[in-house]
């Protein structure tokens, strides 16, 4: 018994020692893994600090200065932000940008969803149609702008030619200030394929049983779409709404290539295509006002953050994620 006790103690001591070593070993392994993980992350971290966080902080500092790239920056406090608040062109640019976003985002979502629904029914040809739908996304933005300048020309463009077949006289999409933003929205739908492909993937993940159950309950195709499809893909719709909104608020390349060219001067169509980032770019690289342009950039950052926060808040009510308790 004594021996046994001793032996039991000894065995216990061995077990405890093994457990401690195992724990130490586990700690050591997880620590090494963490270190390795951080080392693998290091290129991204260096890149983020050097090329994103660093420039952002520098631009925050610049926004409090006057800086023309050639003379050192001089501190002016909040002057640039005050000027932005009374700058007429900021108001115009913001209005143009929000107007474009309000038209572009819903149009993109509705069309993409429609195309994805059609693609889902395409059967064996879906791979081909998916490719065809996505191909326009590969078009370089400047080439796209040049092409649509011709297509949307009010006098001899193909779009108005098409409308003419149905007896409509199309507007001057590229030269009439009233129609420039709708024209840009039409052009932006050229790249609807990227959103449609996401919706197609989401649609295929909606369980078939739900449709069967809905049909058994006598639900019409529209009610199936409203009560089964839409909740089933609401996470993807939400994601694309947020991403497209952010992209729309930063619209630049196509509008700049179409209406401003490389001269960084005035558009020949007045201020109708003056989007926020174009105004920012003109101030920075046309007038060399890096401080003011930095203040404008931070202004846009705040606007995007506020709009995204509103979208996040709305998503709690309208977005359904699979596996979450409702």
């Amino acid at each position: 018994m004594v021996v046994g006790e001793r032996g039991g103690r000894a065995e216990g001591a061995v077990v405890v020692g093994r457990a401690r070593r195992a724990r130490r070993g586990a700690v050591t392994v997880s620590g090494r893994e963490a270190r390795a993980g951080w080392l693998f992350l290091l290129p991204w971290v260096i890149g983020f600090v050097a090329f994103t966080a660093g420039p952002m902080l520098f631009s925050l500092w610049l926004s409090l200065t006057h800086y023309d790239m050639l003379k050192p920056p001089t501190f002016v406090g909040l002057d640039n932000y005050r000027e932005a608040l009374v700058d007429e062109r900021v108001g115009t640019a913001l209005w143009n940008t929000v107007f474009f976003t309000v038209l572009h985002v819903p149009a993109q979502i509705v069309l993409a969803l429609g195309l994805a629904s059609l693609l889902r029914r395409a059967g064996r040809g879906s791979g081909f149609f998916r490719t065809v739908l996505y191909l326009p996304v590969m078009t370089p933005p400047v080439a796209l702008a040049a092409m649509f300048l011709l297509l949307l020309n009010g006098q001899h463009g193909a779009v108005n030619g098409f409308l003419g077949w149905f007896g409509f006289q199309g507007p001057n999409w590229t030269t009439d200030p009233v129609w420039i933003k709708p024209g840009l929205v039409v052009m932006s739908l050229w790249t609807v394929g990227s959103t449609a492909v996401l919706y197609l993937a989401a649609l295929t993940r909606v369980p078939v049983e739900r449709y069967e159950a809905a049909r058994l309950d006598g639900a019409s195709p529209w009610r199936q779409f409203w009560h089964v499809t839409l909740p089933g893909i609401s996470g993807t719709v939400y994601f694309t709404a947020v991403v497209n909104t952010i992209a729309s608020l930063q619209v630049f390349t196509e509008a700049y290539a179409m209406f401003f060219g490389a001269r960084a001067k005035q558009s020949a169509e007045g201020d109708a295509a003056l989007f926020y980032v174009i105004h920012l770019f003109q101030e920075a690289f046309g007038s060399l006002r890096m401080g003011y342009a930095s203040a404008l950039a931070w202004g846009l950052f705040v606007v995007i953050a506020v709009i995204t926060a509103v979208q996040v808040r709305l998503s709690r009510r309208y977005v359904h994620y699979e596996g979450e308790r409702s």
């Binding site: 200030p177 960084a264 001067k265 005035q266 558009s267 020949a268 169509e269 007045g270 201020d271 109708a272 003109q282 046309g286 007038s287």
Partner: peptide, 19 residues
């Protein structure tokens, strides 16, 4: 020079589009 050109070209454009 660049700012002046921008100012007068912008002005003429505003007249052209009726603003």
């Amino acid at each position: 020079a660049s700012e002046l050109v921008r100012a007068w070209e912008g002005a003429v454009n505003r007249v052209l589009v009726g603003q």
